[in-house]
């Protein structure tokens, strides 16, 4: 490391010796900042300002009348006490975490299997599989949700039809959205379907970096496929998995359109996750302050997860 750091230091006096004038030196020092400015402004406008607004809102009473009359009433921690004493918050929060863990776990599992398949497949099969993955990935989230809703429709759905035709079950007219359990199952399917491509392609990318000699050596030593995966591939790809797990958890925690365009949180509010809870409170019930407090709490939770992500990134870098 020290070797690579030295040359630039040595180069700086060099430039001075060549007679670079002070004025242009300060200009060249400013240039990087000028070039960063548009991006910084963009982030400021689209991320920092909304987050600032969100935090401010969470300390205000802001309902529809306040919004229309443009009145601002600071209420301190009122919104937070309300949220933290709302029994629904305490059913929705653990449900969301459990849901995100299930989705993320399944995504990683299926993603890994797809990646291994990609590596093992013949070139044309690999092309077909990776094209399929990319197409699924490219499908807009809400269109995917609407299509899945129809696939699972009790009356016209393909799923019921296929299950009945293949004799797996007598599923004609079966309602997938009648009970919370099955509705949640459908949501998991939709979300995992949408998330697998990213994981599969990332893991596949990781797999390509594993030197084939290691596998050959292991095979010579008599290791089976499972043993090779857990003793060689997985340890080598651990940083990749850490990052994918954290990212998947973050994405699955804040999931919204997949639920809104299928169950709207029903039946019996059994599929209300944090995103839907915030939307109902804020957009539907016009309690913007209260909704903001939930959003801030959720943000803190996600920042915690992101911190893990950044730490994992740093570990990988070193």
């Amino acid at each position: 490391m020290t070797l690579t750091r030295n040359p630039p230091r040595a180069a700086a006096p060099d430039r001075r010796r060549r007679g670079v004038r002070p004025a242009s030196r300060s200009r060249s020092r400013a240039l990087p900042y000028v070039l960063l400015l548009p991006a910084a402004l963009g982030i400021l406008g689209t991320l920092v300002y909304p987050v600032f607004q969100l935090v401010a809102l969470s300390f205000q009473r802001e309902n529809l009348a306040d919004l229309i009359r443009r009145t601002t009433t600071w209420v301190g921690l009122d919104n937070y006490t309300r949220t933290l004493t709302d029994p629904q918050f305490w059913t929705v929060l653990p449900r969301t975490i459990a849901f995100a863990l299930t989705c993320a776990g399944l995504t990683l599992l299926i993603g890994t299997l797809c990646a291994l398949l990609l590596r093992a497949a013949s070139p044309w099969a690999r092309l077909a599989l990776s094209s399929g993955l990319v197409v699924a990935w490219a499908t807009p989230v809400f269109i995917g949700a609407v299509i899945w809703r129809w696939l699972f429709d009790s009356e016209f759905g393909v799923v019921n039809h296929l299950l009945t035709v293949t004799g797996l079950c007598e599923c004609r007219g079966h309602g997938w959205f009648l009970t919370g359990g099955q509705a949640t199952f459908v949501l998991v399917v939709i979300i995992v379907w949408g998330a697998v491509p990213f994981v599969a392609l990332s893991v596949y990318g990781g797999l390509l970096t594993v030197p084939p000699e290691l596998h050959e050596a292991a095979r010579v030593d008599g290791a089976g496929a499972t043993r090779i995966f857990f003793s060689i591939t997985f340890p080598l790809l651990r940083p990749v998995y850490t990052i994918l797990l954290v990212l998947s958890l973050i994405w699955d925690m804040k999931v919204f359109p997949q639920i809104w365009f299928t169950t709207k949180g029903g039946p019996y509010e059994s599929t209300v996750m944090l995103g839907v809870y915030i939307y109902n409170k804020g957009i539907n019930a016009s309690q913007f302050g209260a909704a903001s407090s939930i959003a801030v709490l959720m943000t803190l939770l996600l920042v915690g997860l992101s911190w893990l992500y950044v730490r994992a990134l740093r570990q990988e870098a070193s």
């Binding site: 949180g265 039946p267 019996y268 509010e269 109902n280 539907n284």
Partner: peptide
Amino acid sequence: SNVDNAQVLQDMFQAIASGE
């Protein structure tokens, strides 16, 4: 409208119709 959004009545009718 919040009763509507929480789908209280829809849930009630479904629970009755399905015999749940």
